[in-house]
Simulated assay, not measured.
Amino acid sequence: MADEEGVPDFEVPVGLFQDLEDLKAEVARLSAQVKSLTEGVGADAGEALADDDADAGDEAEEGAAEDEWQFPPFILLLDPPQYDDELRALIEWVEGVLVPGYLGEPTSDSRWCHLWFEHSVAVARLHALWLAWQELTDPATCGYTGPSVWHRDHLDPCMRELRPSSGPFAGCTKGEHQIDHRMPGTVPSAWRQGT
């Protein structure tokens, strides 16, 4: 008969609990080994965790998961040199993927500026488009429909905003570059970090 309601009355061999704890410790050790190998840390393949406590292993895994995942930075919130690094990576993607793969010859109805990175509105929109592309072209995070969603929900609306004759490239014509923006006097407080 069971001591507590809802708990079945059967005997569990003592060795089963020990085996379970051994398995938890092994999973924690393997997780640490995988982490060290993927991060390039010099942990030996046979190195085990010093602490056999299963709770400590769980806490280490949770801490590692928190350390690994960070929200992508929005480029307009970054200060140099992080902004410069992010802009360089964005330029590589725009010039290497977006322009040759998706943009046709600019026309009066469908504009493009070869100095797009000097237009802050274009930088902001293209950065958001790039972040979405990074997530939605990885089957591990979005499945196989991600690229379709990226085209429908991100690429097409972004191009509709950037390329019309009244868009941010309105003053730019083939071979000429013009930035004619009305800049706000103050930066909105939501754009400032740590103030």
Rank of each mutant, 00 (worst) to 15 (best):
A43E: 02
H119F: 12
E68T: 09
T186M: 08
W191G: 03
A170P: 00
E26I: 02
H114S: 12
R111C: 05
L16P: 06
T186C: 03
Q82L: 00
P106C: 04
P147A: 06
W69T: 14
A50Y: 01
V94K: 06
G96W: 11
E61I: 10
T186V: 09
L129R: 13
V12R: 10
S120W: 01
F169C: 10
W116E: 10
Q193S: 09
A43I: 00
R111L: 00
D19H: 14
Q178M: 01
G185L: 14
L98Y: 14
W133T: 08
A45P: 05
K35H: 07
R163H: 10
D85V: 10
G185R: 09
D156I: 12
E47G: 11
A56D: 10
P157I: 02
A140P: 06
I75H: 00
P184D: 08
E105F: 14
S165G: 05
V123S: 09
Q18M: 07
C172E: 08
P188I: 01
A60P: 04
A170V: 08
G57P: 05
D44A: 02
M159A: 07
V123F: 04
D153I: 12
V7I: 15
A190E: 03
A45I: 00
L126I: 07
S120I: 08
I91W: 06
L49E: 01
T141M: 06
A45G: 01
T38G: 08
C113Q: 11
A128E: 13
E47D: 01
E4Q: 14
A190F: 02
V187A: 01
E11P: 02
E95I: 10
A56P: 03
D3T: 14
P157Y: 05
G46N: 11
L162Q: 02
A60K: 07
R182Q: 11
E176A: 05
I91M: 10
D51F: 09
E11I: 12
G101N: 11
E39G: 02
A140H: 11
V187I: 04
A132I: 08
Q33S: 03
L98F: 13
G175E: 00
F117R: 09
C113H: 07
M183K: 09
G194V: 04
E86V: 00
G57C: 01
S166N: 11
L30D: 13
A28M: 05
G167K: 08
D9P: 10
L131Q: 15
Q33E: 00
Q33M: 03
P80Y: 01
Q178N: 00
Y83N: 00
A2G: 14
G104W: 12
D19W: 06
A89P: 05
Q82I: 00
V99T: 13
F169N: 07
V41P: 00
K174I: 03
D3C: 12
S148G: 10
